[in-house]
Design a protein around this nucleic acid. Structure first.
Length: 415
DNA sequence: TCTGGGGTCCTAGGACCC
DNA sequence: TCTGGGGTCCTAGGACCC
């Protein structure tokens, strides 16, 4: 088998680019631009312009801290729906250019070009990458960088060398030499915790770790994780580029502008979150078995409770009831001011495969046929008249969201 | 410094089954 | 009467990524 030909197409400072395209008179004119988080409230930097990065501003940094480093910077909210739309455009162009495309995140696309040599008239992988880069820029106005190699993890690492607006390909056989120039911290999946633990053992560079035995890693980290690290150091990765990978969970969470103390207030917020994830679930034609509630206390301690029902559910009523039970459990264990509340759904199944819903199944889940019909009717009304068309009958939901339909995924700036 | 929101994957212990 | 080992599912927590 000839070596695989994998590309990773990665948008450069994606949120910054989209903010500028969306608001050319405002964000578009600010070289020092920070996207995400309000200047005063809680929130972090989602992305910063290359000019702002020169001041030490980084993603995930509290925005207040970023503004101390770079006080002249302009801060704008994440243009969420514009980002989703622009990401789809990039994906559409790439799927016209390449046979196998997987969207790995909103701004990253893996391409598997194995077997396209003849189709592309033996063009080099680097020339192909540059052709794709220019075509994406021409048709979507989005600047991307492209990394290439024989495996996903190699393409991923190569992309960092390609930034910004460039191409970098690691040729077959050159992988080990390429990796040997890197720190262990550069490897995807090796984060701050593992980096710290490795450093304690005298391991900082990839080269330092190449002599370490598989058995030593496994004795330290466990069988699976030890084997994973041993392979990662060598750039080994047999994961496929899978264009059809299904979503595994749906969640929505909110950090409050000020901590919430009262159970009633929290339960109001829970209702809004439950409705939001349930609506997303049904829009995607899915049902769910496991509901999780996440509570982050004022001291940043994060706790979760989850419950799995024997049969999949989909209605606002059943999902909210499960979430309410879980929230009350969490609160009874530790009743202190809360800074974040979230609802997550996992164990997803297609609603069309759900089969018939007899009395037996209803007994197991607490969801009735009527609950389902009500939720679908509410969905239909909302899609015609907007999100505020229907409010729950018995409870006045003070947390309901504003009219902007693009806002239903939430943003960090709505408070 | 005072820590977002959307995800994926892994681990470990206990229950349960064979 | 006491005791195996493996597999799967569930739950809680955490690391990591963009």
């Amino acid at each position: 088998m000839p070596p695989r030909r994998i590309l990773l197409v990665d948008c450069d400072a994606f949120y910054v680019q989209v903010a500028r395209l969306t608001d050319p008179q405002g964000a578009g004119r600010a070289p020092l631009l920070i996207v995400g988080g309000s200047p005063t409230g809680r929130g972090v930097v989602t992305s910063a312009s290359y000019e702002a990065r020169a001041y030490g501003v980084r993603s995930a940094m509290p925005t207040a801290q970023a503004l101390r480093l770079c006080p002249q910077a302009t801060v704008v909210p994440v243009p969420r729906s514009a980002c989703v739309a622009r990401s789809r455009e990039v994906g559409t162009v790439l799927r016209e250019l390449a046979p196998v495309v997987q969207a790995a995140s909103i701004d990253e696309f893996y391409l598997d070009l194995s077997g396209t040599e003849r189709l592309f008239h033996d063009e080099s992988l680097g020339d192909t990458a540059d052709r794709f880069r220019r075509e994406v820029l021409r048709r979507t106005e989005i600047s991307v960088s492209v990394g290439g190699g024989t495996r996903r993890v190699i393409a991923k690492l190569a992309t960092r060398r390609a930034k910004p607006a460039g191409v970098y390909v690691v040729e077959p056989g050159e992988e080990q030499a390429f990796l040997s120039t890197l720190d262990l911290a550069d490897l995807p999946g090796v984060g701050p915790a593992l980096v710290g633990a490795l450093r304690k053992r005298g391991l900082v560079r990839v080269e330092d770790a190449l002599g370490v035995q598989l058995e030593w890693f496994q004795a330290w980290l466990g069988k699976n994780r030890g084997a994973w690290l041993h392979r990662r150091i060598r750039g080994l990765d047999d994961s496929e580029v899978d264009p059809h990978e299904a979503r595994k969970s749906i969640s929505s969470e909110r950090t409050f502008s000020e901590d919430i103390t009262g159970d009633e207030d929290l339960e109001m917020r829970l209702l809004g979150l439950s409705r939001s994830v349930a609506a997303t679930l049904r829009r995607k034609g899915l049902r769910v078995r496991t509901v999780t509630v996440k509570l982050r206390d004022h001291d940043f301690r994060t706790r979760v409770h989850s419950r799995t029902s024997p049969e999949p559910i989909e209605s606002d009523a059943a999902i909210h009831e499960a979430a309410l039970t879980l929230l009350r459990e969490l609160r009874s264990e530790r009743r202190v001011p809360a800074r974040l509340l979230g609802v997550g759904l996992s164990g997803l199944a297609s609603a069309s495969e759900g089969g018939q819903l007899g009395l037996f199944q209803e007994a197991g889940t607490g969801e009735t046929e009527r609950d389902r019909r009500v939720s679908h009717a509410v969905d239909a009304l909302r899609s015609r008249f907007g999100d505020d068309a229907v409010l729950p009958g018995r409870i006045v939901d003070r947390t309901h969201r504003r009219h902007d339909p693009s806002d239903d995924e939430g943003s960090t700036h709505d408070e």
